[in-house]
Design a protein around this nucleic acid. Structure first.
Lengths: 354, 354
DNA sequence: CTGAAAGCGCTTACAG
DNA sequence: CTGAAAGCGCTTACAG
């Protein structure tokens, strides 16, 4: 039942109806112990009668906390599956703490000054957000702008470009160096000696994955081999072109670590196009554990980040920062794991002309 | 620069610093015309000096509008690409109106009573949300609960189960009937006579797609043929099993419309496993235009819904409802289009034993 | 053009 | 245990 006026009932109307003071109603709805059973009963009846629901906004204003955090997706055209998983993790964590999450995308130039950036109203103004989680592809100028606004934030580190200046602070990442290293280890264990890496190392994440791969190779006394300088309108074509170049290059190759799954998909296509069998003639692996892994034939071996966990860690760190805005936290690096599927196998060197 | 206290400056401090009244500061930040240039200048200086940012929460409380809407994802484990695209459309639309969107997932049983449902605080209480967009898989009891709370809502219609009672109101859908019809038409144009439909018609969306398919078949005097009753632990396996059953069944089949892309993916796999060539021996098409379409070989013909547009239409309708809560809107059905790719071709009847 | 006041819907000491 | 009052940070008639 609604209040007589048609507008939602307020605490005042409830108090009046129950014949008590405002404060008493407030105590009842907040489960404050010092209310007599009889009074509580009267108030509860009134609440029921008037269909009263507290106004959360008003409550927040007096409490000075908004219990809302922002999930900012930087420089993406849309919410891709990768970040959607992170958002799911964030949302799940905050569901347990009673926070709500506001989703915003934000396009900006990496060259604009921190002062010149037009931030969304909810970030620029006060009283809406307790803090933000910065995901997507981002640059230092956004963080600088956030610092100016004085809003606590936590950054998803893997897609941060040129973040070296502030490296290691208030950041959550997954371990792509370690993941790539373990993947290369696995291939070496399988007997491969001529393992290549395909990826545009101009981008920091591809570069880190290369580093991990190279660590494993060098640890075993093999030379890391990089194929990066190839044309391709997208990752699939890049992967295909790189694989073609490798196969034409005349150098031996029995296995390939690709910068991500889509590149690996393109590389597989090109290898099959050359009549090679995966994995008998060549082993191919990707990175990220995207859905595409299940759609290649054979299914793609890859490195899996736990994106929901990454999201949850962002959420947890942010809450700690909100409670103590002066605190700085060392980077959290969540684990990754190698997922072995059909696309890699034991090295059968003869087949590759080695 | 911060206010001296360390806490963010309030309008009161600005007024004091500038030597004016509260109202004047308010007028300045709201660009009210009746402020003398000199005063405006003084206030702006004070704002700058104190690093003042208005508190949006407080502003909203007095205005009585929250300018926030909720995107509720019902009964999904995570934010899948399909709904992520809708959310992108919603967010994009609201970015232009200045609204913000809060993302929440919500699990509930279709059998719980409307009163018994535990709604998130932001939905149950007042003052946070002006309205909600209901996406994901949903049942009438949620809408009933929303009606009780008195929160305006708009429903994404395609994944609504048992929604017939309220059919056609406050709903945005994409035209799956029409899409399936156009797809079947296309196959018929290509000379196919023995076109089957694969999908679990127990689910409303697969049933509607079947209806569209059947309309086209009947319009041309062909008998619709349905393959629905097959085991399969997921859509891929279901599609594969259904295709196998068809091929074993002895009845002629030259083309297959699948309930969605993943089913089509499974069906393609099974057909290829039988040594059939797609599309020379059999044409296969899906529905939804998921990424998987690009990963099958040949690429999958499908029906594309415009999910960002669906999201934007939800947003638009919701705003209209918020402005006039008693208004009801007829269902909006957004168009779909057939996307022809390599997986369908002209009927070469002989190859299929016809 | 401008200030003082009332009010948005709540919470929380402060006195009883 | 309970009520009256002050206050959260703003906006908006209302008088000047």
């Amino acid at each position: 039942m609604e209040s007589s006026s048609g507008r939602p009932a307020t605490i005042r109307e409830v108090a009046q109806y129950a014949g008590v003071g405002l404060g008493t109603v407030s105590r009842v709805i907040n489960n404050h112990p010092s209310v007599s059973p009889a009074t509580r009963r009267r108030v509860e009846d009134a609440i029921e009668k008037l269909g009263y629901q507290p106004n959360l906004q008003a409550r927040r204003l007096v409490k000075g906390k908004t219990e809302t955090i922002g999930f900012v997706l930087g420089n993406r055209d849309f919410l891709d599956p990768f970040h959607a998983k992170m958002l799911t993790g964030v949302q799940r964590y905050f569901a347990s703490t009673g926070h709500q999450v506001v989703y915003t995308s934000l396009q900006y130039s990496k060259d604009s000054s921190a002062d010149g950036m037009v931030l969304p109203k909810i970030i620029r103004l006060r009283g809406v957000l307790d803090g933000v989680i910065v995901a997507g592809t981002n640059y230092p100028n956004l963080l600088e702008a956030l610092d100016k606004v004085g809003l606590p934030y936590v950054v998803f580190g893997n897609n941060m470009v040129n973040g070296n200046g502030r490296k290691g602070h208030d950041t959550v990442s997954f371990d792509d160096v370690g993941g790539a290293r373990k993947l290369a280890e696995k291939l070496i264990q399988l007997g491969h000696r001529h393992v290549w890496y395909i990826g545009r190392t101009g981008l920091p994440w591809f570069s880190r994955r290369y580093d991990g791969y190279a660590q494993a190779m060098e640890a075993h006394g093999f030379k890391p081999m990089l194929c990066t300088d190839v044309e391709g309108k997208d990752s699939t074509h890049f992967g295909a072109a790189a694989m073609t170049k490798l196969l034409d290059g005349g150098e031996p190759v029995t296995a390939v670590c690709c910068g991500n799954d889509v590149i690996a998909f393109g590389a597989s296509k090109a290898a099959r196009g050359r009549g090679l069998n995966v994995p008998d003639d060549i082993s191919i692996a990707g990175f990220d554990d995207r859905d595409v892994c299940f759609l290649t034939e054979p299914e793609l071996t890859t490195v899996r980040p736990f994106l929901e966990e990454v999201g949850a860690e962002c959420a947890k760190m942010l809450l700690a920062k909100v409670d103590d805005s002066s605190a700085r936290f060392p980077e959290v690096i969540t684990p990754t794991e190698v997922v072995v599927r059909g696309s890699i196998g034991e090295c059968k060197a003869a087949a590759c002309g080695v």
